[in-house]
Design a protein around this nucleic acid. Structure first.
Lengths: 219, 219
DNA sequence: AAATTTACATTGCGCGCAATATGTAAATGA
DNA sequence: TCATTTACATATTGCGCGCAATGTAAATTT
């Protein structure tokens, strides 16, 4: 009845298609939760977190606010669920890519492209805005912090690809953090462009160059 | 009575110190406006834009909301003033640096360091959050867009330093945009770290390498 | 020195927001 | 099949927010 996500937490799972007839509780739950989370991503990407209000979510998800309360407890719970979902969204870009035996520069290329597919998405944009608002909150447990969790989810993929690096620990961490920061930066300038977003292929090229050079360094 | 800022707009100017006695109107105006804008930066950096409320600003600035209304018309006007002030804040890091006759790599180093002094600041953090909220607004004129203005203020400094580049126009623009995006990215990951922010010297080093290499390219 | 304008402080108001409480039909379990 | 739980919808409330209106003591102008 329940599967686990990438972090071992229980998540609801849809049992069958989206037919109109009789539905199981698990189906209904999974479907509505997905619709709500999708509405969060859509809404934040379009109008920002500040205007992501209860009625707006209800409209876009096609449910009432009562449904959100039932499944997530309230607005905060809903946003947290969206953040966690965005973590899975990132990892999903690397699920089907076999990376064993692939040369370093090719791995670097694939990582940057795959990661950009995430950082350029509504999912990351939403997670970023949500986490940014959460850091300024004094209520709310946040232990360990969500940004730690986010970095973990990045680091899992990263390590799977580049664990064979000869760099010293802190240098390895620096280039990793640099790479992720660059992607986050390209995403952040993109956010400010509103609708018409420019392509980023040249910039991603610069990043790939640095990545290949630094990872291939003999320390 | 009035000077102009870097963009040719009239701004109030303090006439004399912050003594307690008799004050001119221009003094009072300049002082209060500065206090309010400073409160905006402080508040957003500490608790985020969402919790940057009228009463919070009043508290931190030591004035009432009526003062804000008088000087900026309302909340939006206040935030816009803060954004414009942040543009000047960026340029101020390069005012006293003579760059004529300085070799390219040294100029690159100075630009990255000076720019990071801005991107890592509360001022940029605040401007970013404000602009991010403004892109999702349908009211509000925004012509030409504030992000265009922001890029202009960056570009002015950039061009002053690197106008002698041999790169083609679009390649030059790409490396410029990359540089600014990296700085914005380092800033954005820093925002999520809350209080305890890590140093970024290694990452800035990677950026400097790329910058020197690409600008020195014979096209 | 009188008139006017400026630079605020004070008060009150309306609105949108999220939470609470409650109702109900469908699904599940005994 | 009947009791119970689940998955929502609906109605109501309270609260914090920014704004508008007004008051007032300074500073400036005449």
């Amino acid at each position: 009845m329940a599967q686990t996500n990438r972090r071992g937490q229980a998540v609801a799972v849809p049992l069958v298609g989206a037919g109109k007839g009789r539905r199981s509780q698990a189906e209904r739950t999974a479907r509505t939760r997905r619709r709500i989370v999708a509405a969060v991503f859509e809404c934040i990407a379009e109008v920002g977190l500040a205007r992501t209000t209860a009625v707006e979510i209800s409209r876009r998800a096609g449910v009432t606010w009562g449904a959100v309360q039932h499944h997530f407890g309230g607005k905060d719970g809903m946003l947290i669920a969206a953040v966690e979902d965005s973590f899975d969204h990132f990892a999903s870009h690397f699920d089907d890519l076999p990376m064993t035996g692939v040369p370093l520069d090719e791995r670097a290329h694939r990582f940057v492209d795959g990661a950009w597919a995430h950082f350029g998405s509504r999912e990351y944009r939403s997670a970023f805005e949500i986490l940014l608002e959460f850091v300024g909150r004094d209520d709310l447990s946040d232990s360990p912090s969500w940004r730690t969790e986010m970095f973990r989810s990045w680091d899992r993929v990263w390590m799977e690809l580049f664990h064979d690096s000869k760099l010293r620990r802190n240098e390895h961490l620096a280039i990793e953090h640099y790479t992720l920061s660059v992607l986050a930066g390209l995403a952040s300038t993109r956010m400010l462009e509103g609708g018409r977003a420019q392509p980023r292929s040249k910039e991603l090229g610069f990043l790939k160059d640095t990545l290949v050079r630094e990872l291939g360094r003999p320390s």
